[in-house]
Simulated scan of single mutants.
Amino acid sequence: MSIDSKTILFGYFDEEFHLRGIETPREKYVFIRSLMKDGCVNLSGRKLSKIPFEFVNFIPHKITGLILDRNQFKDFSFLEHFPQLKMLTLNKNDNLEFETLPKMDHLTMLSMNGCHIQNLYKELKRIKKRCPKLEYLSVRSSFFEDGTVPAAEATHRRRTILIIFPNLKVLDNIEVTKWERQNVKEYLRAMRRKGLCCML
């Protein structure tokens, strides 16, 4: 059995999120590379709450995408070890909070579909401060409870998100149109004319 097939077959992460079942640095490297395609690593559905130790030590500089769907992430400080990250997916993670999210100057795509987010708009504002180049955002089917902005219909929520992220190109897999951008600008102008402070 070759190193490649052995590591792919027997490698796994223990409760402390260390790589087990394979021993040598060479085998660990091969296993990690087996999870990586075109600079993107897929760690979906592994019940992780933090990134495995080996990923930070072996190839973080080569990783441009992380697929972390169906996990249990709460602390995102580990992302500081991935300076070239451009794409991050966190679909179906519960109780997401981004207080520990580091500055991510290269991140352009973020997906959080099907997540339970206690305060969606608060977390989106945190993301905006730390991800200035974000162009693609998806929060479809995310359940949230928010005391800052009243529960609203999909159209209102989309407009609210575009107020937070005026430079988005795609929101919820739908391209942001010139009409939408103009509508947001007119809405903000109307709010100012009425002397109302934007809730955001």
Rank of each mutant, 00 (worst) to 15 (best):
Y12F: 09
F98V: 06
L200P: 03
E97Y: 01
L19W: 00
F55I: 12
G45A: 11
T148C: 09
L79D: 02
V149P: 02
T177P: 05
S111V: 13
W179S: 15
N167F: 08
R33H: 07
A152G: 12
S49I: 06
F53V: 14
T89W: 04
S77F: 04
L120H: 05
I8H: 00
C40L: 09
I67P: 00
Q182L: 15
E23S: 09
S142Q: 06
N71T: 01
F78G: 01
W179E: 15
G39L: 02
K50C: 11
N113I: 06
L96R: 00
N57R: 08
I161D: 06
Q72L: 09
I117N: 02
D105M: 13
L66E: 00
S77P: 00
L79S: 02
D146P: 08
H61W: 01
Y12A: 08
S44G: 12
E80C: 04
K92D: 01
F55H: 01
L137S: 11
K129Y: 05
K185C: 07
F98W: 06
C115L: 07
M109K: 13
L35F: 00
V176M: 10
K178F: 05
L66F: 01
L120C: 09
A154R: 14
M112C: 14
Q118D: 12
H61E: 08
V56I: 15
K178E: 15
K6F: 05
N42C: 11
G39S: 04
N173K: 15
F53G: 03
H116K: 11
Q118H: 12
K125I: 10
E23V: 07
N183V: 07
D105P: 00
E175M: 14
V176D: 05
L43C: 04
K178V: 11
I174P: 01
R126N: 14
A152D: 09
H106C: 12
F58G: 00
K125D: 09
V149A: 08
D69F: 00
E123D: 10
M191T: 14
R181E: 12
N183K: 10
I8V: 07
A154W: 08
E153I: 13
R157Q: 14
E145M: 15
A152T: 11
G11I: 03
K194N: 13
P132L: 11
D172R: 12
F76D: 01
F76T: 03
Y187S: 10
G65N: 03
P166F: 09
I164G: 07
E54N: 02
H156L: 10
H156W: 03
E186V: 12
S44Y: 02
T89R: 04
